[in-house]
Write a protein that binds this DNA or RNA. Structure first.
Lengths: 213, 213
DNA sequence: TACTTTCCCTAACGGCGTTAGCAAAGTTAC
DNA sequence: GTAACTTTGCTAACGCCGTTAGGGAAAGTA
């Protein structure tokens, strides 16, 4: 009865060849080349075959989205491992986030740039929970054990993410590339990253303390 | 010789009716309804007429982009007017940025979400220089007159923008709408905004002072 | 009135996502 | 082995899209 197994395997093979080929297309020719017809052409099947594996184009994108968030969560988890202090963990995660974004532009553009994710989309990406977990735990670890949290960790989590995402997207979209108009600012984006991380950590450390306005 | 004047005027009228109608379409039906054909339909002209006013679809988008950045720059300039202290100016601009984004979602999505702006695009939007100017001047004003700047103002300008943009885009894309999973966090985005602004201002104030790691 | 210019339309091209319908191949039952 | 059925993957179409060629009517000019 290995026949149905083989069929299963073959079907699976086609499915992954769709995903692989599609990703190849995106990486080598950009998102504008991501079309069902081009994928079909590349895998040497006709168009409807793709629809027997994926409900529609968005379903393929969702798959990449999942993978992207999973990779990001893993990268952050790996980055914070073995750091001596929660503040170092946060710094490491910030840098890892940045590196992930620029090492995987296509993923990042999909995850945050293209199809503005809807509520339903979010619920379909379990790795986003991991992301929250990995980041929030370091933030919570910033306050000495036993003491009550002087801030809302979810708030800080969002701040952290917002800052990083803003930084990345400004720099990725060449809005930050006005560097041309400002000679001598070549390594600037990385300085901004450190600056922003520093501000963030300071903000956590001084939370709950009296503000001098 | 008023004939050529009238023609000029009529042509101008068609041009703005294209822009008005297109914007109407976008606001009432979303970006997916922004198509040359739908615009032509709505203004009751045939498609090629549009091409006699705009080189292509992107040219129309560019027009909206220009307008968007102009509006944003104006909003920020208005917000900072009459504030007693540069720090208040910065806070006011941060809130104005937020308000602009959510009061003009379609503009904001165009400016930062859709057609990831290229270098050429940026150079075609003069208002981006104003934006830089409006923000940077307040940042520079943070340090007492006469003293040397303990930071790169362009760096801080980018940090400011990045933080705000990240905040806005996370919240606009309903990635931040995980609030559903976290009851009791209803007004949270605005708290994050204040938190982030506070961090930023602190970061400027303490620049140049010794860091305690 | 005859000529020229301007305006604007129809119709097409090639691309896209998606789907209906059919033919060939493989599988199963007798 | 053959007949019936299921699976598989194709062609061809539909209705969108941006963009452009070419022609015909209207307006302006002499």
């Amino acid at each position: 009865m290995g026949i149905v197994d083989r069929k299963q395997r073959q079907k699976e093979e086609v499915r992954s060849s769709i995903l692989d080929t599609a990703w190849d297309l995106v990486v080598t020719e950009g998102w504008q080349s991501f079309s069902i017809r081009k994928i079909a052409d590349a895998i040497e099947y006709s168009v409807p075959v793709i629809y027997s594996h994926f409900e529609n184009k968005d379903a393929i994108l969702l798959e990449f989205n999942r993978k992207g968030f999973q990779l990001l969560a893993e990268a952050l988890a790996a980055a914070k491992a073995g750091k001596p202090h929660p503040a170092d963990e946060i710094r490491a995660m910030g840098r890892a986030y940045w590196n992930f974004a620029f090492a995987n532009k296509e993923y990042y553009q999909l995850m945050f740039g293209l199809g503005i994710p809807t509520c339903e989309t979010v619920s379909k990406i379990p790795a986003m929970k991991d992301l929250n977990e990995v980041i929030s735990s370091s933030i919570i670890a910033m306050v000495p054990e036993g003491k009550p949290l002087p801030f809302d960790p979810f708030l800080k989590y969002q701040s952290f993410w917002s800052m990083l995402h803003g930084l990345v997207s400004i720099n990725m979209s060449s809005l930050g590339r006005s560097t041309n108009d400002h000679p001598g600012h070549e390594g600037l984006p990385l300085q901004v990253l450190e600056d922003v991380l520093c501000s963030f950590i300071r903000g956590i450390q001084s939370a709950g303390q009296p503000t001098e306005h």
